[in-house]
Design a protein around this nucleic acid. Structure first.
Lengths: 227, 227
DNA sequence: CGGTGCTGTTGACTCGTTCTCAACAAATGT
DNA sequence: ACATTTGTTGAGAACGAGTCAACAGCACCG
């Protein structure tokens, strides 16, 4: 019979006082870890965050972390999705959106977006920078935010119709979104610009863009004031 | 006396045929590794690329890699900088740029940019997605690209003056750059849109933007054709 | 031709990090 | 009292970045 590797002897030194386990409800613990993870990822980059540290700060064993999240990436993505959802919720919560004209709707929406951005600045930057380079799941989260937001505050305007009929308009809309994000980030890095100025510029350019991309007949409806 | 771990005996088995070393010139090897690194990072994300693998593919020891690059990050950044430089060079190489009107210059510049983007699609995407989330050096490389390009094909137009006089114009320009990048990425993901259409849209919107941000007196000079 | 010094090259090793797993303990039945 | 479920632990496997002392190829010099 082959020599089996000796079973590891788990000796429990009687002298060492046993720390009483703290047993939490499943959801609570998960929530705790998720919150701590989000905090960590907004202040540090992905690799800088170590599960060992996280577990230490949460006063649990590393093993327990993996009982709740299969991988570190899952924690990251879960946090990102939550951050993203908060942004969407904030915008969806804007009251009376449906009653306004397209232009007013866009203005109120962009304003709410910028308000959120400035309130959550570091969280927003963390969301945008993506953390993990080109992870498809991360990209998906960002994609969902963009689509949700547009769908929401462009409801009523024939945006979805454009997307289908004119291929260029899809690019145009994505471009404008890219513009909003770039503007937000730049705006955060300067203190002194009033929100309304940024908002008006973005809204004006949105309609400038629509004018150039839409059928002339439809475009007339959205005619923007000249500069 | 405690049992000391026996010193590892470095035995050179006579039977084992010694592989003759391949000794390369310093620059050659560095170039080889950089090229392989760039290839790896354009098809895989930062963490997916392992120096062990890279060394294996280059048929060298891992130690040698670190003789040429102090860290993995350095390889990454060196590659990124090269990719970025290629983009800048391409645009700077556009002939007779100085002779054109601002609008034509912008148009030619954007066109060259888009041409490069479509030729180097995966390289461009790799450049934009940044790989490492919020690394300051990576951000610096991207920043340099943007500034160089703008400086180059906006030479003559009072861009730098705007940046100083009107705080909003800084945001406006960054926004437009964000727009160009977003448009490029979206354009790459659709096959069927002619380059000229994207180019014209971007240029038109650039001047729409200038109209809204500039002093009315200056703006008159850049009046864009209506949609 | 044999030394000598420089430099490209090796491979084993350290260290840190993600992720695994069998044993264990606290609650919850029955 | 005993059994079951499930939150929890700690050791360690697996792997990757980065280090280091020794080594080999080559040019130069006598």
């Amino acid at each position: 019979m082959p020599v089996r590797k000796a079973k590891r002897v788990v000796k429990r030194p009687a002298a060492k006082r046993r720390r009483r386990l703290i047993r939490l409800d499943n959801d609570e613990r998960r929530a705790q870890l998720l919150a701590m993870g989000r905090a960590a990822f907004t202040t540090n980059s992905y690799d800088e965050v170590s599960i060992d540290d996280l577990a230490k700060k949460a006063k649990i064993s590393k093993g327990l972390f993996y009982y709740y999240f299969p991988t570190k990436r899952d924690l990251y993505i879960a946090g990102l999705a939550e951050t993203a959802q908060e942004l969407v919720d904030k915008l969806v919560g804007v009251p009376k959106l449906a009653e306004l004209s397209p232009r007013e709707r866009a203005s109120v929406g962009v304003d709410a977006y910028l308000a959120h951005v400035s309130a959550q600045s570091s969280g927003f930057v963390a969301l945008m920078r993506g953390g993990i380079g080109s992870d498809p799941e991360v990209a998906q989260v960002l994609e969902n935010v963009r689509v949700s937001i547009l769908e929401e505050f462009m409801k009523g305007a024939p945006i979805s119709a454009f997307l289908k009929t004119r291929p260029l308009s899809r690019i145009a809309i994505r471009s404008w979104i890219g513009m909003v994000e770039a503007a937000s980030i730049e705006w955060l890095s300067q203190q002194d610009i009033p929100r309304e100025a940024v908002r008006d510029l973005l809204v004006d350019l949105l309609f400038d863009m629509l004018m150039r991309v839409l059928d002339p007949r439809d475009a007339a409806k959205y005619k923007a004031p000249a500069a």
